[in-house]
Design a binder for these strands. Structure first.
Lengths: 235, 235
DNA sequence: TCAACTATTCTTAGTGG
DNA sequence: GCCACTAAGAATAGTTG
């Protein structure tokens, strides 16, 4: 909107419409990202258009599928029934339990990422064999994977209100951090160091010693600092 | 953003965060609507929050489901580009790794479901305490969770093309099936048997023996068959 | 908690290269 | 078609009742 108040109606001119589309999709995705981060909520957006073969999505196809899954699992989509009847009671219990599940889910996500890294590195030429371009691509992907985690971590700053009375039962055994994981972390850092032109604000750079047992100077949790992963690739 | 540039990070203050959430959700939905109208495209947005029992959606729950359906049915990523250039090479590696990740993801999904079940049952009145209505609701939910599994059963007929040469490296320790999991499965089965009016298409029904060691008629590993999980969600 | 009100930043329509 | 630029208009953080 500039120099003229735009009417809320279909834009006749083809090129104008296409241009507007690109600008506004970008804007919409940015808004979604901001909302998600600022308020610590899950969100997803999908836009189909004749302009792209693939739909425009946020945060990522994978996350979208997950968020969609949650949405579809909530039978109460038809908000016709808001009354707290028998039916809703059980739904609320389910929702509450789901909350607990999310925690495990996030943990699992990290494991998946680690696994992915391993696949990429062990399955190919290794880190050394990758050029800057490839590293950048990989970095891009990793960042994409980490986005949701980042959000979660930002959310986790607060004193964890933890819905009253709900005991965090962990029925699923949680895998411990393995040496492999530690090694992978160092590799991730190396990628950052290899590709980052100069240390930027908010980017955590680390030194590493030689050998298998590299030490991370920052707590593991720092990987999930959003300012670390988010900025360079998704401004 | 007014009177101060806001930092893109989780808002610590509860009331501020809630206020911002309400404002921004409204803004986001408006943007989605405008984009859709101005450019004549389909779009949908979903936002979960601790503030609303129901997710915030646009344009409407029904439309969202429809748009989502299209998204999940989308044929294939741009397979058009067959050229195996530098850029695509890395992307293919990533995609391949992603496939592996999906397996773990789906495994996790099952664990989450089990965990959820446990939450519901252990945290509440237990299965016995539930009435038919509640069981029905729970059944619905579980069925929803199991849908992808059902698909897999249909898919598992074909020879599973399995991308050549990809070695399934498993860097992440996979949790073993615990007695608890077995028990939970039996509970699921029981609910299925107690409430299902008739066996529905795609729903895996199982017989169960008494005691702790119940057997699933299909091998557990089948859950991890990529051809099963992969297709519907990651076309 | 909520709604109304700005001051300020952000978004983007229109333009030109 | 793509960028970069700019100013009009929209969104919203912080404040007030």
């Amino acid at each position: 909107m500039a120099r003229k108040k735009v009417q809320l109606q279909w834009i006749m001119n083809d090129t104008t419409r296409r241009t507007t589309y690109k600008k506004r999709v970008k804007g919409l995705m940015k808004k979604a990202k901001e909302l998600s981060i600022l308020c610590g909520v899950e969100a997803c957006a999908i836009v189909y258009s004749p302009y792209d073969p693939q739909p425009e999505v946020w945060p990522s196809p994978m996350e979208v599928v997950r968020v969609i899954g949650e949405f579809e699992c909530r039978p109460e989509n038809d908000q016709t029934k808001k009354r707290l009847n028998q039916e809703n009671y059980i739904r609320q219990r389910v929702a509450k339990a789901k909350e607990q599940v999310v925690k495990q889910q996030k943990k699992n996500r990290r494991m998946e990422l680690d696994n992915l890294m391993y696949q990429c590195l062990a399955g190919g030429r290794g880190l050394q064999g990758l050029n800057i371009k490839e590293l950048s691509d990989l970095m891009w992907y990793i960042d994409d994977q980490l986005k949701p985690i980042s959000h979660k971590m930002e959310y986790s700053h607060h004193p964890a209100p933890q819905p009253g009375g709900a005991v965090a039962l962990t029925a699923v055994p949680v895998a411990q951090k393995t040496p492999l994981e530690v090694a992978l972390e160092s590799l991730e850092n190396q990628i950052l160091m290899d590709t980052a032109p100069q240390p930027r604000d908010g980017v955590v750079t680390v030194a590493h010693t030689e050998g298998q047992d590299m030490m991370l100077p920052v707590p593991h949790d720092n990987y999930e600092d959003p300012s670390f992963w988010g900025a360079p690739f998704f401004p």
